[in-house]
Structure formats: structure tokens, C-alpha cells
């Protein structure tokens, strides 16, 4: 665990965000199987990245998200009721129930969309950075994507443009070692120390422990400050591991020992241990915190269950705007 000293309130708030994501996702895994349609990709195991990155962002800063996007939404301040309603395909959901788990967005808090196409969000984030430059604001963009997206052309194109024009974008790789069921190292020579790629584009890059929320927070802070002051983009390669399969219900071909290794490095367990050791929190407080957040998640599920199903005609809305 990183030894950098952060104040107690900040650590507690990072912990709370991670816990929100974890309990939302554990609940989602359960209710998905019996109560929802389609597919869902959960973020369990990777919570430190969304929490650590987004704690550095203001409400009007932007993020682009991925197919595994629930964690990003929660960390950016998304409404769990509207999220869960979307997962249930209900009219009260973020997208009127049209798009489900893959495509949650909340433009009012700068979430420019989760995306079903791997790597597609990268040039979109670059464009949001361009817009910031053109409009002359001090906003920044955090662009989340996985190790599997780095082999896409959009990575090369989007990152190069941001570097060429000093755009305020932080590219955050959630490096969980796998594409769907295949290890990225089977198809990519440089895939663990992506920071070296940043150098090739002329921007700073850092390989960090993505399961250490304090390290993620600290590295992002530096990148965000740099971006806000007009010095351009940065790349953060956050090593992590997803506890779940690619999507809920998918075949798990991963090595059991590998899974155990990473579960022992669970980001939430680690921050809890640190907080207990440093007496930032007590066992009782952890329990009450978990109970409180589980209550919020349960309320979100209830809200979704009671929400109206869209009328079929809703499928024809929003193709064009006036």
C-alpha cells in the first residue's frame, strides 16, 4: 500500500466510493440473473481506479467510459436509482431504459457515455478536450479504457492528437490483463508497462498499482493539475484484475491461482486494512458503512422494480432532435 499521507476525510470518501461500486455490482450480479435481460459487465475488483481518478474531478469535468462502466458512473456521482432502473430497462433509467448496462451516461455530471465498442471513447475524449481548449475553460477529461483497447487504432489516433495539441485529457488504462477470455499478452508485446507508450507520443506516462486507491488518487492528481494548467495529456496505466468473468454468466478460463492472487490484493480489503491499522476507521464503522450503502443499493433496486416499463413507441423516440 502506498505510504503517501492523505487526510482522513479523503481516505474515507475514497473508501465510501469504492464500497458503493462494490455493493452496487455485487447486488447487480445477483438481480441480473433473475430479473434483467441482456448482458452486464461488472466492475468488481477495479473499484480503486474509478474512485481514485474521479475524486480528482469536478462536476463539470468529463469522463468517457466503457462497457464495464457502472463504477465510473458511481464514482463521478451518478444516481444509483436511475442507473439501476436503466439496467432493468425501465423508463426512469438514465437512457429511458433503451440501452441498459452497456450505455449508461449522465451528461449533467460530465459522463459522456459508456461505450460498447472497445476503444471508441478515446477520440471522443480527445474531442471533449479539444472543446475545452476552444471554449477556454479549465475543465479536464478522464478517458477510461481497458488494456484491450490499446491495440485499437483509436488509441493511437486519439492519444496522438491530444499530445500534438496539448489537450487536457488523462487517459486511464484499466489494465486487467484480459480481453474477453484471452490474455492481452498473447496478442501484444508491450502490454503491462504501457507507460513506455506515452513516451512515444510525447506525454508523461506512469505504471501504477491500480488496486491501491491512494496511488491512483495521487498519480491522477498530478496528471489533472498538469492538464488543468495547460500542459497537456498524460497516460496512467493502472494494473488491476476483474473479479468477475468478462460478462456475468460468461465462461471463466482464468487460472485459479491467478484469481486467488488478485483477490488477495482486493482494493477494498487493502484500504480497509490500512484504515484499521492507522485507526482511521473501526470494524463497527466498516459494518455500519456497508449497511448504509447496501441500504442505498437496495432502495435503487426497489425503485427500478417499481418503475414503469417503456411503451413500445419509446423505441422510436430520440432518433433525431428538433
Amino acid at each position: 500500500m502506498n505510504n503517501i499521507k492523505l487526510n482522513k476525510e479523503l481516505i474515507l470518501s475514497l473508501y465510501e466510493t469504492m464500497l458503493k461500486i462494490r455493493l452496487f455490482e455485487k447486488t447487480q450480479e445477483r438481480v441480473f440473473k433473475t430479473e434483467q435481460e441482456g448482458f452486464t459487465h461488472v466492475y468488481t475488483g477495479e473499484e480503486a481506479i474509478a474512485a481514485g481518478v474521479c475524486a480528482n474531478l469536478n462536476k463539470d469535468d468529463y469522463i468517457t467510459s466503457t462497457h464495464r462502466g457502472h463504477g465510473h458512473m458511481i464514482a463521478k456521482g451518478g444516481n444509483m436509482k436511475k442507473m439501476m432502473a436503466e439496467l432493468y430497462g425501465r423508463l426512469t433509467g438514465y437512457c429511458k431504459g433503451k440501452s441498459g448496462s452497456l450505455h449508461i451516461a449522465d451528461f449533467s455530471i460530465g459522463v459522456l457515455g459508456a461505450n460498447g465498442i472497445v476503444g471508441a471513447g478515446i477520440p471522443i475524449a480527445t474531442g471533449a478536450g479539444y472543446s475545452i481548449k476552444l471554449r477556454g475553460t479549465s475543465q479536464v477529461v478522464a478517458c477510461f479504457f481497458g488494456d484491450g483497447a490499446v491495440t485499437q487504432g483509436t488509441f493511437h489516433e486519439g492519444v496522438n492528437m491530444a499530445a500534438a495539441w496539448n489537450l487536457p485529457v488523462i487517459y486511464v488504462i484499466e489494465n486487467n490483463l484480459y480481453m474477453v477470455g484471452t490474455k492481452t499478452e498473447r496478442v501484444c508485446k508491450v502490454c503491462k508497462n504501457y507507460a513506455v507508450k506515452a513516451q512515444g507520443y510525447g506525454m508523461p506516462g506512469e505504471d501504477i498499482d491500480g488496486n491501491d486507491v491512494i496511488e491512483v488518487y495521487t498519480a491522477t492528481k498530478k496528471a489533472v493539475e498538469r492538464a488543468r494548467s495547460g500542459k497537456g495529456p498524460a497516460l496512467l496505466n493502472c494494473m488491476t484484475y476483474r473479479h468477475s468473468t468478462h460478462f456475468v454468466g460468461d465462461l471463466d478460463v482464468r487460472d485459479k491461482q491467478e484469481i486467488e492472487y488478485w483477490k488477495a490484493r482486493d482494493p477494498i480489503k487493502r484500504i480497509e486494512e490500512k484504515m484499521l491499522k492507522e485507526k482511521i476507521i473501526t470494524e463497527d464503522k466498516i459494518k455500519s458503512c456497508r449497511d448504509k450503502i447496501q441500504g442505498m443499493v437496495d432502495e435503487a433496486v426497489e425503485f427500478a422494480r417499481k418503475s414503469p416499463v417503456p411503451k413500445p413507441e419509446v423505441a422510436l423516440e430520440d432518433v433525431f432532435v428538433e
Binding site: F107, T126, G127, A128, S131, T154, E157, G158
Partner: peptide
């Protein structure tokens, strides 16, 4: 722009949903 058609069009999209 560089010779990066995905970059150009993606960038145009990102800018157009954020006030441009």
C-alpha cells in the same frame, strides 16, 4: 488534423457533445 480519420471524426463528436 493528422491523417487519422477515426481521430478526426471521434474528436468532432466529442467536441459536438460538449458545447461546440
Amino acid at each position: 488534423a493528422p491523417i487519422s480519420e477515426q481521430g478526426i471524426i471521434g474528436c468532432a463528436l466529442g467536441a459536438s457533445i460538449t458545447g461546440c
